[in-house]
């Protein structure tokens, strides 16, 4: 029997979770933009717009300390970050293109060496996804195999209904536990009809075919053409739910400071620059090629997944209008 939660009760749920001292993160109006931020009350939740940044930052912060060092009485001491202090978190109101990203990133963060900063946050968080009834002409989640109602990655999945309430499906045990702990906010019933989804402009892509083309066309005139205008900023990578590249830097003096891990982008000219001055990806189109290859070939080679959820953020944000969906369509339509 599906569970139903009214919008008011959803907001009440947030209030309760905040009271339980959980870190509740959801879309919230911050200045003039909607971002995933800690909600302090149910009324903070804004479900009108796709947040500018993806929800990956709950697991993979923009910038976080990974250790601190201090010289004490002449002896250097390195201190680990106490990851047990990471809060129990609930991500609420993430559409499938955001909720689905941890399911993709888990692979790279846990193969062989395990990034406990990411994984600990993952273990401590519950993801409440929500079916997407908005979307614009930049959206292409269907094209990369997701859908506005895809439950992948969500622990509890909400489907907006026409009467303003939500049908809930507890996808995982974490989701069930969340419902069970607040059972009085949910009611059983068939509920109203779901709100309709928005059509997407990009047709479903044949990702296998795209990957094959990428495999055979490391050198191709296409790369020169599409990245010709790329100005080399990191906007696409930083707001992407799936981009996971990072940099590690020390900040502080030689006696006292922290080492930080923070977002980095393959579009930056210095990303792969050797100290000697040699740069394997010395021009912008090689860097852009790496972006596409990483998402649609390399990641699949390594982990069997596509590193893209079709959220369309990079399309909306690109200063020069580079459209990854258009590039994929171009590749998809190639004959050989």
């Amino acid at each position: 029997m599906p569970q139903i939660i009214t919008e008011q009760n959803l907001r009440n749920l947030i209030d309760l979770l905040v009271k339980e001292a959980k870190l509740v993160v959801g879309p919230k109006l911050s200045g003039s933009v909607v971002l995933y931020e800690p909600l302090t009350a149910g009324s903070d939740l804004t479900l009108d717009a796709l947040p500018r940044r993806s929800s990956k930052e709950l697991f993979f912060p923009i910038c976080e300390d990974i250790l601190s060092y201090k010289r004490e009485n002449g002896a250097m001491k390195v201190n680990d970050v106490d990851r047990s202090k990471f809060p129990e978190a609930v991500l609420i109101g993430a559409p499938p293109c955001d909720a689905g990203s941890p399911a993709i990133l888990d692979a790279v963060m846990s193969w062989d060496y395990k990034d406990e900063f990411y994984l600990e946050r993952r273990r401590k968080s519950t993801i409440v996804g929500i079916a997407c009834t908005k979307g614009d002409d930049a959206c292409f989640c269907r094209a990369v195999g997701l859908a506005p109602d895809a439950e992948a990655g969500s622990d509890l999945f909400l489907t907006p209904l026409k009467d303003g309430s939500y049908a809930c499906n507890a996808v995982t045990e974490k989701g069930q536990a969340l419902v069970a702990a607040h059972q009085n906010l949910f009611s059983e019933g068939a509920g109203a009809e779901p709100k309709p989804f928005v059509d997407q402009a990009v047709a479903k892509l044949n990702l296998v075919k795209i990957k094959k083309w990428l495999e055979e066309h490391f050198e191709d005139p296409l790369w020169e053409k599409i990245a010709d205008i790329c100005v080399g900023c990191g906007a696409c990578a930083f707001i992407c739910p799936a981009c996971h590249c990072f940099d590690i830097n020390d900040e502080g003096s030689t006696d006292d400071g922290v080492r930080r891990k923070h977002w980095d982008a393959c579009g930056f000219a210095k990303f792969t620059n050797h100290a000697s001055g040699h740069n394997p990806r010395d021009v912008q189109n090689k860097r852009y090629r790496n972006r596409i290859m990483h998402k649609f070939k390399y990641y699949d080679d390594k982990f069997g997944k596509t590193l893209c959820t079709g959220c369309g953020r990079c399309i909306r944000a690109c200063p020069v209008g580079i459209d990854i969906a258009e590039i994929l369509e171009t590749i998809n339509s190639k004959q050989d």
């Binding site: 931020e37 800690p38 709950l58 912060p61 923009i62 910038c63 976080e64 300390d65 970050v81 809060p87």
Partner: peptide, 8 residues
């Protein structure tokens, strides 16, 4: 810190 990087 940005909220995501702050522990609490």
């Amino acid at each position: 810190e940005q909220w995501s990087g702050a522990i609490n």
